[in-house]
């Protein structure tokens, strides 16, 4: 009983963290604030994963999202947005249709979720075992093909990102003289 109370409180705290972060991302006027608010969302969702006994996913979420994607986004913000020019570096268009679409989608999803799964209770294990070793086994047995495919994808993304960001592509964009492009 004690554990379940702690679970409930933790769930609401983490959900509030994630949703506050998302609201700040959506409604903040400065894009730097948006980028930092994304941190709250990622950490909140990682906490929710941990609450769902998905410890490996939670750790990977923190490592990849907070340590990787967020840093990349912050770099992109600082390299592209002229944040020092004005206060409003993150302008919005079409607030009313956006709000309408958001409210319609939120209403639909929330009503569906509550109607379909509202009264169901939790399967509550006292001490769920670690998921690291079973997931490792799954990755190398049942999901070995997607695992290998994703490693090839990562290589392609690595090369593609370097090629695109280095700007070498624009030389070949001339059209006819592609054949005698410099080696």
């Amino acid at each position: 009983m004690n554990g379940s109370i702690v679970q409930v409180v933790l769930f609401y705290l983490l959900a509030a963290l994630a949703l506050t972060g998302a609201c700040l991302v959506a409604f903040s006027r400065s894009i730097v604030h948006s980028a930092f608010a994304l941190l709250g969302t990622f950490v909140g969702v990682a906490g929710l994963y941990a609450l769902l006994a998905a410890d490996l996913v939670a750790i990977v979420q923190v490592m990849v999202y907070v340590g990787g994607v967020l840093i990349l986004i912050l770099f992109a913000v600082m390299l592209t947005a002229r944040v020092d020019e004005g206060k409003e570096s993150n302008p919005t268009v079409g607030k009313i249709p956006g709000l309408l679409a958001m409210l319609a989608m939120a209403g639909l999803l929330v009503v569906t979720a509550v109607k379909a799964f509202g009264p169901r209770t939790v399967i509550s294990e006292a001490n769920p075992p670690s998921t690291v070793s079973p997931i490792g086994n799954l990755l190398l047995s049942k999901y070995v093909l997607p695992f290998e495919a994703i490693s090839v994808l990562l290589l392609a993304v690595l090369l593609g990102a370097v090629t695109i960001a280095s700007g070498r592509m624009r030389k070949g964009a001339g059209g006819k003289q592609e054949g005698e492009a410099p080696r």
Binding site: Q7, A15, T112, A113
Partner: peptide, 23 residues
């Protein structure tokens, strides 16, 4: 207690906020 519906509500709200940002 916290059930599946709670998580689905949180995820639905996250999705709609992301949609708002995209629009």
């Amino acid at each position: 207690s916290i059930g599946l519906g709670h998580y689905l509500v949180v995820s639905g709200l996250l999705f709609s906020l992301g949609l708002y940002v995209l629009i």
